[in-house]
Design a protein around this nucleic acid. Sequence first.
DNA 1: CGAACCCTTGATGGCGATCAAACGCCGTGG
DNA 2: CCACGGCGTTTGATCGCCATCAAGGGTTCG
Lengths: 228, 228
Amino acid sequence: MRTGEKPEIARLPLFREMDEAKRERVFAGSFLQVFPPQLTLFEAGQHPDFLHVLVDGLVELSASSGDRDTTMRIVEPVTSFILAAVVNDLPYLMTARTLEASRILLVPAALVRELINQDTALMQATMHELALAYRGLVRALVDMKTRQSAERLGNYLLRQQARRQEGGLIQLQAEKRLLASLLGMTPENLSRAFSVLSNHGVRVEGSNITIADHEALSAFAHPDKIPV
Amino acid sequence: MRTGEKPEIARLPLFREMDEAKRERVFAGSFLQVFPPQLTLFEAGQHPDFLHVLVDGLVELSASSGDRDTTMRIVEPVTSFILAAVVNDLPYLMTARTLEASRILLVPAALVRELINQDTALMQATMHELALAYRGLVRALVDMKTRQSAERLGNYLLRQQARRQEGGLIQLQAEKRLLASLLGMTPENLSRAFSVLSNHGVRVEGSNITIADHEALSAFAHPDKIPV
DNA sequence: CGAACCCTTGATGGCGATCAAACGCCGTGG
DNA sequence: CCACGGCGTTTGATCGCCATCAAGGGTTCG
């Protein structure tokens, strides 16, 4: 692979603490590949051949049961994804497709598992990563079970704002229809949810969202109180 | 702690492969305690002091946002729970309370983290456990987002049957109101969901459920196709 | 024996899905 | 360069699933 993006990947929590030589083996054994938009990278049910690291672009993870599908996650760079399937060597539960042209580092799953067993720091990082991902899913499930749609949208906006800098301006990185699916509603109802939030401190201009009144939005959305 | 339940605990995936001497340290540093029914063991937001292993009894894990709560999991023996919070040393996201009188092994969180870092087999087991738990939550979230209530109940019954022996008889271990909350519905609607399923191969007699026609129920509930 | 409480069944209401149509944006092709 | 067509978004109307409210029957426990 080219050297340009190595530092950024090496800075990921997953690889940060591991042995330098072993990290080189990760890079040496991997492929950095460019994919066009709207391309399916893998499908749920397939055997996991690679750990994926999104270096640049945008990826959707979705899942389905019966004839309905739902967006599970929108992956932004630089992040690894589908770690759990690789660790357990069990079929993917989600389908991945690019939303934009994307550069993705493909680390052979067997190599990942081998290095995990050789490098304690990597194993520990994997363990922590999984534990954090687990917590994220617990929150997502609670969100879905206890809040109605406009509240979920409000909380999503609050979280997005927190993840970025201060200022209250949020740029939606994906289409609204995708955000709707991520939040477990239809595009029509997302639209209506935005208009509900306009009475609670949120201003919408296309994909530019402004949280004008953080207080009001928080009061409406009842965000999680437990930190991290 | 007494010796009677050691073998059963040692057989858990989490402790099974680890160094014998280290496992003795787990037992030596832990407390096996008996709790009455309806007792809160810990609350969401608290700092995790113990990894819990339910040896006997029944425990509910629940979570809330704002004024609504929801059952996240019903823990049956012999199982460890809240591993993720202990590993990350981050506040519990869920509240635990006993449903029946329960015997629980309390393993100090600091000890768990110390031994994980000393024993590769334990760390690996923890990693696998977390990855499996992650997959379980992915399925739960997809379930909630893509299926309606009677389908969720149908799938729950199919999964329960698969986890136990053949025969089609399922005994609900907890109250129906709890099952309702676990499945993200009200007790009233659980009742109605059961009566819907009576047209699809399910027979209900109190807390004894029989899957009389596995085919019919599967056709109705669209169970997950991806194994494990 | 009475008082809770759980479960069930019925009636009503609200949230969100579906159906439908209009608008705007963007890319393509004439 | 403009016209057209496709698609995403928005808004309105209707429908259906599920929550809520209400009441009655059964069981358990004091």
